[in-house]
Design a protein around this nucleic acid. Sequence first.
DNA 1: GCGCAAACCTGACAAAAGTCATCTTTTTGT
DNA 2: ACAAAAAGATGACTTTTGTCAGGTTTGCGC
Lengths: 238, 238
Amino acid sequence: MAKVEFNIACSLCDHLKDSLFNGLSPEDLSRINNHKTCVQYKKGQNIFYEGTRPTGLYCMNAGKVKVFKNNVQGKEFIIYIAKPGDFLGYRALLSEEFYQATATVLEDAKICFIPKENFFEVLQKNPVFMRRVVKAVCHEMGVMEEKLAELAHKSVRERLAANLLMLKETYGMEGEGSSLIDLALSREDLASIVGTATETVIRLLSDFKSDGLITFEGKKIRVLDAKKLAKQADLIVA
Amino acid sequence: MAKVEFNIACSLCDHLKDSLFNGLSPEDLSRINNHKTCVQYKKGQNIFYEGTRPTGLYCMNAGKVKVFKNNVQGKEFIIYIAKPGDFLGYRALLSEEFYQATATVLEDAKICFIPKENFFEVLQKNPVFMRRVVKAVCHEMGVMEEKLAELAHKSVRERLAANLLMLKETYGMEGEGSSLIDLALSREDLASIVGTATETVIRLLSDFKSDGLITFEGKKIRVLDAKKLAKQADLIVA
DNA sequence: GCGCAAACCTGACAAAAGTCATCTTTTTGT
DNA sequence: ACAAAAAGATGACTTTTGTCAGGTTTGCGC
């Protein structure tokens, strides 16, 4: 399948405001813009592979991408799901290591690639931007610490509930009293997020459905009762 | 118990070479040095608490400190064990958030505190230092991603073996064909690292001992057969 | 050195979650 | 539109791990 290129000026990108590039001077932004390559990807295509060397930064313009690690038995663990405005592959780039995870398109995506030289150039020249990147990275690390503790001590039921709520926060389209998680996740992917077996996710989801906490809309999940779900997640409900 | 102060010039610190401050110009280093406060802590004392606001950076000169989160039922999960030369509390400082974890002394420690103004001053002025900090943070993030995947898909037995090997890498004192993990960890703390119950750790450790993989030396563990331990951890053995 | 508390250990049991096998439904490619 | 493949669902069973309850040993303050 041939890669299809497209082009949108960064300054006109719908997601600039959500991105770390927001607030960059026009010169810096055009430095990024002039060197970027933008590609359309289909569902299932890979952006980068575990074990390879990063050569630049990916910036999402459209679609959804999962970033995951494969364990010895071939089971996936999904570390992150990237949405428009998100950077992709910056961790390995900034730590000067190989990619430790693979990125695969979940929903047809448009992604821009910025060669590392140009990214680093702007980073070096612009301490405010550097500071913002550091802040974002450290925040992300805090999120991961949270996940780590959750994975260590919560049951699968609690984790699934917690992850549904998290997905709702990030991808939720609010309706009247309910919220649709705008992400076409397979049961298997959901299991790879929660860190459990596919069958377990299926069983728990149908539990949650019977209890009126969620419903299914096509491939998507609608959260009907976030409060009860939070109780299932063993979170303190205000 | 009163805090006991001490003082060592950063430039003369034994652990400068292991620290991110290594390579700082004399001026920058003395900027750090002139504003730091160094305190001796006893085992069990806390350095900082989850939910409070960071006011500076801690830099370890001696001892060991555990950084952990408490879950709802009061169970600990240990995120990190800091040793001399390590920074402490930098994540929350750089992300401008509250501490998300508590730091408690495991082995009597000497720790220097650098007020955030001075740390940030050096960080702003010195892009090379900033770059090094970013690199370290991103590397640390990679380690956490690894842990996350491990926690999600490995059994407790595998995780315990893997963690013993990791502790050996960091705290191991090499002997002839064996290596002593120089860390006085309680079974409970080890359980909090692995993410399991204390009883399970006790049982598995005595399994490993029966199989000749480890022995106990006082409160410490000696790794006798790292290769077999790696097999238990389900790692690829060369 | 004594007594108390904490840490360590063991066994029995229960609960949670994984695995495997099978079946149904949905999606996809041609 | 159809066949094949993938995804989803369900039941039976096993294994892992947590929990509880009861013991012993160790370490520490007085």
